[in-house]
Design a protein around this nucleic acid. Structure first.
Lengths: 140, 140
DNA sequence: TAAAACGTTGGAGTGCACTCCAAGCAAGTA
DNA sequence: TACTTGCTTGGAGTGCACTCCAACGTTTTA
């Protein structure tokens, strides 16, 4: 479920702002302000709005995008690929097929990684069991 | 795939192909020779035997260790922690408890990572589904 | 025996994903 | 207003895990 469908027709409670400073976004996302600026510089953010003096003002939509990017990061996707995805989004609706392909590749990668991890889990359990009981000492 | 061939007259009594050159080990493990030397330099390998002229000769035991290290690497464990584990092995049997603790920490980390990945999988599936059906165009 | 292929070392270089710095302008508080 | 904290930029620096280099010695093959 994405966070971004905050509609403008229904007035939300006063706790929800529509413009966030970089440090507010840093606190909300767990990213540093440095990293947020860097994301923008490399093209991983859609254009971020500015105040009349040039300071960044992030929207709810930016927050939603950042949440999704956070998920992509957790998949282990390289930043370069996330930038590619962001480019596709900027290019418009005709890139849907490529976006889906990218996501499906990522999905396959995640599945593979989960299988790998479950494999290591088996080895780890064997080893832990070994230390828990007999404790023979060869490094193997 | 057989590892045992690759040469020659089986004359010398001391050489029962249980000694592997660095490039053989590279081929068997998928690591590069560079990486194998680097592993040794940083203390991630137990002492590797040498030929009379100083070239490395890996044993079956080294191969087993490398296989285990490969599993640890797949867990995402930092190299520094793997080196710590290797040190504990070198220090002898009285480090069993600490070794087990290290492995149990790693196990918990793997479980967490699997959960994270399954979470990203849910988001990915939602998104892929979205592109598969309606294809509305907001970047979210 | 000669050439090609393989091995050795310390140290330098690479790519990734941040992370920080300096110097100066902007915003909120007493 | 003065002060303190926050935000701006381009560019340099960091830490990790390799990855490669130069210059030379060793082993295998023809």
């Amino acid at each position: 479920m994405s966070v971004i469908e905050s509609t403008s027709t229904a007035r939300p409670p006063a706790t929800r702002k529509d413009r966030y400073t970089i440090s507010e976004v840093a606190a909300l996302t767990g990213l540093t302000a440095h990293t947020l600026r860097w994301y923008e510089r490399i093209g991983l953010m859609p254009h971020v709005d500015r105040s009349h003096t040039g300071q960044r003002r992030f929207t709810e939509r930016d927050l939603g995008w950042l949440a999704f990017v956070g998920k992509l990061r957790l998949t282990g996707m390289p930043v370069a690929d996330m930038v590619r995805y962001a480019e596709l989004v900027r290019e418009g609706d005709h890139t849907h097929a490529e976006r889906r392909a990218l996501l499906e590749d990522t999905r396959r990668g995640v599945l593979t990684r989960i299988a790998e991890l479950q494999d290591t889990l088996a080895v780890l359990d064997l080893k832990i069991d070994h230390y828990g009981t007999i404790c023979g000492g060869t490094p193997s």
